[in-house]
Computed example of a mutant assay.
Amino acid sequence: MGADLLSAAPLLETRDLAKSFRGLRALRNHAISVREREIVGIIGPNGSGKSTLFNLVTGFLKPTAGAVYLRGQAVTNLPPAQVNRLGIARTFQGTRLFAQLSVLENVLAAAQLRHPSSLPGVLLGLPTARAARQAAENTARELLALTGLEHQANLRAASLPYGDGRRLEIARAMATRPALLMLDEPAAGLNAGETHALAQLIGRLRDRYSVAVIVIEHDMDLVMNLCERVQVLAQGQVIGEGTPAEVQASVRVREAYLGSDDAA
C-alpha cells in the first residue's frame, strides 16, 4: 500500500458496531476503517457475523449499538436505497437478478439511478431525458464489456450460466458508481478458473473506477492473493486483522478458522 493510501482519511468506518437478535449477539464492538481504493477481505467461520456486518453497513439491518460512517458522515440508520445513493453498493450470497429482463436491462436499471430523468421528460422526449438515457446505456455497456458480458447483452438474465450471473451482479452493482463495493461470497459456486478470473475482474474494477472493495469469502486463495488487508471474525468479534501474511501467521486465527498445524 502506498503512502498516499495510508495517509488518506477513511472512506468507511464502523465504531463499536453491535447487533443482537433476541439476545443472541451476532456482532459486538466491531470496528474497521477502509480507505479509498483499498481491497479488504472479511473472513471467519459460518455464523461469525460477516453477513450481519454487511447488512448493517448497507442499511438492511439497524444496529443494536454503534455507528457506521461514510466519508465521515453517519449513515447508520439510513435505508438501503439512500446508502446506495451515497456511494455503497453490494452483492448478495445468492444471485438476485431480474431474471426475465435482459442482461443489458439489468445493468441499465441500476445505471439509471445515477442518470435519472423525470417522467414528463421521458413522455415528452425532452433532450435532457434522451441524454440521461444515453448516459445510462453507455455506462451499462461499458460495464458489460469490462465484465466480459457484452456478447450476452440481449439474453435473458435467467439463461446465463451461474458464473456469468455472478459477474452480472457485480456489473449491476458497479453501475450505481459506488465509492465502496461490498461483495458477499462472490466466488461461491465458481470453479478455480472462474475464481481466478473473478480476482482479475475485481482488480480491474478497482483500478478503472478507483473503488474500494470489501470481500466476504471462504476461498482463502482468493482472499490472500487479492486483498491488501484481511479482518477475521469469530463469534461476532474481531480476532485478527492485518496483511494476508500477518493473518496467516496468527496462531489465534489459525486455531479459530484457518486450522492450526499443531492441531493436525
Rank of each mutant, 00 (worst) to 15 (best):
A99F: 08
E246G: 14
I170R: 00
L144W: 05
L97E: 03
M174Q: 07
T95R: 09
Q235A: 14
G242M: 04
E38V: 00
Q82H: 12
A234D: 15
L53V: 08
T91E: 14
H151V: 03
L86K: 06
P244T: 10
A8F: 07
P45R: 11
E36N: 09
Y69F: 15
A129N: 10
G72S: 09
L123N: 04
R167I: 00
V103W: 05
P79C: 04
F60Q: 07
E169T: 03
G2H: 05
I202F: 12
L119G: 02
F98R: 07
I88F: 08
T128S: 14
G47C: 11
P80C: 12
L226K: 02
A263I: 10
S7P: 01
H218D: 02
Q235S: 13
R96W: 05
L146A: 07
A131G: 02
A136H: 10
I88K: 13
I202V: 15
A81N: 15
Q200T: 08
E137P: 02
E228L: 00
T76K: 11
K19I: 08
V122I: 15
V57K: 00
A111R: 12
A212K: 10
P178L: 04
I88Y: 09
F92Q: 02
D221M: 02
G49L: 09
G193T: 13
A8G: 06
L104C: 11
I39S: 11
E169G: 13
L56T: 08
R172N: 05
A31G: 14
A129D: 03
A111S: 12
V34Y: 11
T91D: 13
R208H: 12
I239E: 06
Q82L: 15
G165Q: 15
R114I: 08
V122K: 03
K19G: 02
R35M: 12
E228C: 03
P63E: 08
N29G: 14
E217I: 02
V238E: 13
R229V: 10
R254Y: 05
V247T: 05
R22T: 11
R156N: 12
D221G: 12
A157T: 06
E169P: 11
M174T: 01
N55K: 13
Y69V: 00
M182N: 01
S33W: 04
S260G: 02
D4R: 04
N154P: 00
S159Y: 05
A131M: 08
V230L: 04
V68I: 10
T58V: 04
